[in-house]
Design a protein around this nucleic acid. Sequence first.
RNA 1: GCACCGGUAGCUCAGUUGGAUAGAGCAGCGGACUUCUAAUCCGCAGGUCGCAGGUUCGAACCCUGCCCGGUGCGCCA
Length: 580
Amino acid sequence: MKNTKTLGEELSLYVQAALHDAFPEMIPNDFEATVVKTADSRNGDYQCNDAMALSKILRKAPREIANAIVETLEKPDRKPEMVSSLEIAGPGFINFRLNSEWIADRLLAIEDDAFRGVPQVGAEKTVVIDYSSPNVAKPMHIGHIRSTVIGNALDRLHRFCGFRVLSDNHLGDWGTQFGLIILGYRHFVDQKALEASPVQELERVYVESYQKSKEDESWLDQARKELVKLQQGDEENLALWKKFVALSMGEFDKIYERLDVRFDLTRGESFYNEDLPGVLTRLDEAGLLVESDGAMVVDLEAEKLGVCIVRKTDGGFNYATTDLATVFSRVREFEPETILYVTDERQQRHFRQFFTVCEKLGEGVNLEHVWFGLMRLPEGTFSTRQGNVIKLEVLLDEAERRALEIVQSSSPDLPEAQQRDVARAVGIGALKYADLSQNPQSLVTFTWDKAMALDGNSAPYLQYAHARIRSVLDKHAAQFPDDTLEGAIPVCTLDLEKGLGLKVAQFPEAVLGATKHYRPNYLADYLYELAQQYSTYHQSVPFLKSEDGVRESRMRLIRMVADTLKTGLGLLGIEAPERI
RNA sequence: GCACCGGUAGCUCAGUUGGAUAGAGCAGCGGACUUCUAAUCCGCAGGUCGCAGGUUCGAACCCUGCCCGGUGCGCCA
């Protein structure tokens, strides 16, 4: 597709030109006209509110300015082809109605484009996305789902906008917990349990060892010694550690497969182990390293961020050091424009700290912390030690089980294998959508019913709309084998059709907005509105029984709706089965 | 104490950074399947956008203060 602008951007350019024509030399250089979608279709399709803002600068009444813009745009040789009518309303709003034929043309162009009209704003740019990042030797639980699902959606969105994306699963595989785990493992691991459910057993060992360390000082001492041995490369401990990592990865991979999540890189904290002393050297050379209470820190008091500890009193490094080393490594190896970190809100301060340190060091990379609200249970926060965590595996099982019940009752004719496939797509989709359809920053109180909503604004609603269209298309192909859709123009005759066509043409704006603001819910909202508009349309007009000509046009339009739904759901990591 | 986030319909939440009469879903009430998938659609009802000031043509959105909830604030990640 040659034209890589959204509809709003195109209209903005026309207004910008008209402004300079109507008021030569009077428009400030940095002023950019903006045309946005209307909230209410009674006010047209798009609107420009600049006349009010310019009123002071130009010392003219807003309506006068709006008039001048409209008059310029209505000159016969100047009228944009995409606009069918212009109208001034209220204090000086300019309302645009788009031309139906032009929308139809735009739809054809979108259909021809591999990216469905989405401007490739990320071309030539690299972004590293750091997400999911579970801890080794602990099972993934519902607290991990947001980072995984939101991170994965951002991953897919960025790729679709042309970015070169490197997704990296920054595993917690080198913390101080390994001293306790190794010691615990030696004393009370149950080999049978380990075989049956490795991570669960490792976690049990960890919790027991942790408890013991609380009561028994010498136990804690021994754990510290095991940790030091590990860090110094002791063969036996290293072998145990490798075993723990491998066992954990095996279980993580099962989850990732079910969630259809893939990483380009899986580099845990241990990957950067050897770089840690170098981080200190570099900080020292930059004059940023100071000693404080026996620890080495970077003083960020001036930024009101306290101090950032990079070496503990005992000489060990901590997460800030590792995170710095990770940035250096990524910048050196991949030269990213941006690194995205998708974690919960509790780490905001930590990220602001080490982002500031990177800035002081002159790392030329844009660091973004995409944080999301904490997930909690109705009775309060959950924690491993309280034993009230819901394991991700259990959650996924339950989602599929609930979906299967519905599929069996509403599609009893489907073969069982297909019922299972559909249930998987619907169940997992519902789960993902529950997270992706809301503002990531809102706090989430987990309930089974909410996480797995199957009606209303939910993934199954979108999947249902998509499957319905596919079903109509199949019936059409069977009943009218001679119809060729390729020659047909998508109709935009009825209001419903024009609205639907316009909505499809706005897909790029939705994708860009979601990507730019790191807000997958912008895309989810868009898809929901699209599906809603389609459902209304579906209810109101006949497809297969409509007259020749109209029929093909309608089929062409709804096929585009189906394709848009499928692509959009795909960007959220949600499947769109042909039948549900 | 300081910092960040949240407070919008009975419940769960949107509201793309200042635009027109604040929107959905669920729950409630009333309608629509002999017809392309009723996991659907149409309609009704439901609001002091936490409170009080301020900024301006215009504020749920920006500023100030306060109330309530969450989270964080040196050697965990």
